[in-house]
Design a binder for these strands. Structure first.
Length: 273
DNA sequence: CTGAGCACCTGAGGGC
DNA sequence: TGCCCTCAGGTGCTCA
């Protein structure tokens, strides 16, 4: 589920509720998500207060008052909430951080592809394990020129390059699909044959679409919920994602699907070259 | 280096 | 109603 807009939506919501609240008790109902949860048991989180919440790519960093932070990734189906402690646990609730005011931070994730780990933070408020990530797509570090350079250092399908977190971070299947349609570039287009103009268009569309998705509170296909349980509304603005077999909204040609890197990719054979 | 396949999990939806 | 199949927003591994 969560790509960058969803992670940003979660970060903003947590930033409104977590800072100042203190952890009083940690409950683990599962031994592992993507990684083992056991280290959280011995991390001595009780007594620590949250100071701020950051986002980097699809990750959230919940900073604590001792230069450490909780690294959160929602995987495909993760969701977090801050609700009264007395609420009954949900079916796939794996971690509960009881807070000092009768509320609890909860992490639920049916498929358990998510991640929650405690790490020391550097001066930028980030854990070293995120150093491998490429630039944020909404900053000037992600631009047509750097994307052209990256493209010509590889010989792969452009959609795979867009979804490579070391090139640009946070662009997943939904937004890569939508951005390439808007830019008129076929997902299978070889990166080493991309023109400067095509790279410029792709970068511009990625930025525009991510910005609109953030404004809409993210995209809810089935699982994504904001911290307050609300759904993102960007799915109403999806143009071709998940619409293979239906007519292209621009030219009417039947949308096709192709598999790249194990992910299905929808495209218009006429509008995208 | 590239790309295909698979693995990690559960649940939803379609066909029968 | 239920079984079986396929598919799903992510990531990371192996293998050819």
């Amino acid at each position: 589920m969560p790509e960058l807009p969803e992670a940003e939506t979660v970060a903003r919501a947590l930033n409104r509720v977590l800072p100042g609240r203190r952890i009083v008790k940690v409950t683990l109902r599962t031994s592992k998500l993507r990684t083992s949860l056991a280290p959280l048991k011995t991390a001595k989180l009780a007594g620590r207060a949250f100071t701020a919440v950051y986002r980097r790519g699809r990750y959230n960093i919940l900073a604590l008052d001792d230069r450490r932070g909780l690294l959160l990734h929602l995987g495909m189906t993760g969701a977090v909430s801050v609700t009264p402690v007395a609420e009954p646990p949900r079916k796939h609730e794996h971690v509960v951080l009881e807070l000092d005011d009768g509320f609890a931070f909860r992490f639920e994730d049916p498929r358990r592809f998510g991640l929650l780990e405690c790490h020391p933070l550097n001066e930028k408020g980030l854990p070293a394990v995120l150093d491998f990530l490429g630039p944020e797509p909404l900053t000037d570090d992600f631009n047509g020129e750097m994307f052209y350079c990256a493209a010509h250092h590889h010989h792969i399908a452009v959609k795979e390059l867009l979804m490579d977190n070391t090139v640009v971070t946070g662009v997943g299947n939904i937004y890569a699909t939508e951005s390439l349609f808007a830019a008129g570039v076929r997902p299978t287009h070889r990166t080493d044959r991309l023109s400067h103009a095509a790279c410029d268009r792709i970068v511009a569309e990625v930025k525009a679409i991510l910005a609109r998705a953030i404004a809409a509170g993210g995209t809810t296909i089935s699982d994504f919920r904001g911290v307050d349980g609300s759904e993102g509304s960007f799915n109403r603005e999806l143009v071709i994602y998940g619409k293979a077999g239906t007519p292209c909204p621009r030219c009417g040609t039947t949308l096709r699907t192709v598999t790249l890197g194990g992910r299905s990719s929808c495209y218009c054979p006429k509008c995208q070259r």
